[in-house]
Design a protein around this nucleic acid. Sequence first.
RNA 1: GCCCCGUUAGCUCAUCUGGUAGAGCGCCGGACUUUUAAUCCGGUGGGGCGGGUUCGAGUCCCGCACGGGGCACCA
Length: 496
Amino acid sequence: MSGSDERPADAGSLRHGLPELIAERRAKALRLRQTDAEAFPYAFAGTEPIAAILDAYEHLAAGEETEDSHRVAGRVLAKRGAGKAAFLDLVDRTGKIQLHARVDVLGSEALQRLTSLDVGDLIGVDGAALRSRKGEISLRVDAFTVLAKALRPPPDKHGGLSDVQTRYRRRELDLMASEDARKLFADRARIISAVRGYLDTEGFLEVETPVLQPLYGGALARPFTTHHNELDRDLYLRIATELYLKRLLVGGLERVYELGKDFRNEGVSSKHNPEFTMVEFYEAYADYSDEAVRLEELVRRAARAVDYAGELDLEGRWRRVTFVESIAEATGIDLSSARDPDALRAEVVARGLEIATEGASWPQMADDLLSKFVEPTLQQPTFVLDYPVELSPFAREHRSRAGLVERWEAFAGGIEIANAFSELVDPDVQRERFEAQQRLASAGEEAQPYDELFLAALEQGMPPAGGVGLGIDRLVMLLTGRDSIREVVLFPAMRD
RNA sequence: GCCCCGUUAGCUCAUCUGGUAGAGCGCCGGACUUUUAAUCCGGUGGGGCGGGUUCGAGUCCCGCACGGGGCACCA
């Protein structure tokens, strides 16, 4: 943005639009500096939340006034002049209260200062509680202080801000204009707090593992790469925390979790942001069935934390269906009999299903069938169980079904929210999986790097364990009824 | 990377076939001591960027930028 837009108007130069609005506000700020010794104080101590005042005077009758003085601070949302009186709406993080200014209380000079405030200015007020004749709980302005002059105009006071581009790029304006936006991010915080609360209560230890990793792993995704100058080596921003957390189980921490950002250098969509918040938790001596129960409980706690009242049944036991069953239900294809690429391709073509089959591997096609034909239908929370081994390099082979692993993905609202395994703990099997991944990589496919330190950890003896990765942004989408990840991330990734 | 749609005043939106671009809110000035989308009077402000066609382009054409949706991608 060009700085020349923001200078006050020079004498004789014609300025319009935003520069003019800013110039007018700057002129007012200048006047404040000249006339008010405390125009820009460093702090304003002793304020009460507006909501507390509204609660405390609920009993007042219309027209009833008190001499109980209260101190509040917030942003001027609206201004209604009435000659020798004025009304302002003041908003803080807890609510909105009307201010009533009168010349017989303030004097004409102070009233003039008050009415020359702009919508968007931050002020502190001392005043007595009253209920106006029209019935609104208000504060009579006995004294006020400008806490910050707003040099730019706020969004429209009733139309609000609806341009999505501005809402995402300048989230502060969205929050300023929309109580709903403020509530959404408060809900997000409550959800995260509930997740931590549940895991803490269950004896999980919150840990922090490297974001900058010498090798990336734990998921299949392209990483962001960066460079450490002193060590003179490339590092990757983590795509998952999985491998480090499992090493902590080897170390005996037994129940651990990490909640934080992962980074994937992939496309942006309504379900994908290049940096996103994930919680992964791992539990020794448990398997994937135990973890399904944990996820149900964890999501139930989070839903209660925000008084979830949507369409999804998050209180009861979630539906469970196997990978093979779910695809058979949705497409009629029996994966257990179409076990090689050619057979599966023939089935897909015969049924006229629109997925890529040219040169596609069996696992690619199977996964495509799931994401295209099953996932969108899974509105009520559902665990899809027992995936083909080819799709899951860190999951343990199924105890009774050949070719499958003990893995589930949890879906709700038509999107994937979580993924879990009975963790693969056998170092020799894990080594074979890495080797298979290397063959994929040399064939040009995305695959796991070979992680010797992780294998060494497994060779120390890793307890049987269940582990879960839960996408926090998607959980927030689900519990707040938003259909885009950009709505629930404060500052989503945008082009410059 | 591909396809479709969008971009007009500080904000929210209009503007038939190409012919002087409008409103509400905001802002500035004035009136008003109980308003709350305050009201009343007067004033102020604009076609994303770059080309082209045309006597004349917000409108038609080309390119670019950004956004939205979809596809691809995303275990």
